[in-house]
């Protein structure tokens, strides 16, 4: 079927079978490969994108359920919070292999948009579903705290 999607501020019309996860439309059809495939079962968070600004797992979001919601991916996520998060990620050199980091950043931006100065406990709870096999967690936590500081300044 043909579906209209609003992705990163532009309308795109894509062909996809019902039941196709948004993840694969982003990656294989639209070539927005910054959104990653890690597990396909909502257990790793590598596929995290924003639907109307809220982090969701794109591997569990069926294409027909997106509707009028606006999809934002790592390639285009912007604004004050995203910039603060990227700056913090650079300052702390969070990344290692990097494969989980798109999802981490999308989740972190979502978290800081909701909660400007999260506690460590809130960070751990909100980031729990984003796995990092390189175990960069210490820096993820530190970078979110740093981003909150940048936003406050």
């Amino acid at each position: 079927m043909s579906i209209k999607l609003k992705i990163n501020g532009t309308m795109s019309e894509v062909e996809a079978a019902p039941g196709t996860p948004l993840l694969w439309v982003l990656r294989d059809t639209l070539r927005l490969t910054g959104t990653k495939f890690g597990c396909g079962v909502a257990a790793c968070g590598a596929c995290t994108v924003h639907l109307d600004g809220m982090p969701v797992r794109s591997c569990q979001t069926m294409i027909e359920d997106v509707g009028d919601s606006e999809v934002t991916t790592i390639e285009q996520v912007g604004g004050e919070v995203a910039e603060a998060v990227r700056q913090a990620w650079r300052e702390l050199d969070v990344v290692q292999c990097g494969y989980c980091q798109s999802g981490q950043i999308m989740q972190a931006v979502g978290l800081l948009t909701e909660t400007r100065s999260p506690s460590v406990e809130e960070i751990d709870a909100q980031m729990w579903g984003n796995a990092c096999r390189c175990a960069t967690y210490q820096r993820i936590r530190g970078a979110i705290l740093r981003a909150a500081e940048i936003l406050e300044a």
Binding site: T33, K36, I74, E75, W89, R90, V95, G98, Y99, Q101
Partner: peptide, 16 residues
């Protein structure tokens, strides 16, 4: 770091 925080780093999985 720059390529790994904006989605532009290319992994094997991203080959099209």
């Amino acid at each position: 770091t720059p390529a790994k925080i904006d989605g532009s780093a290319q992994y094997g999985m991203d080959v099209h």
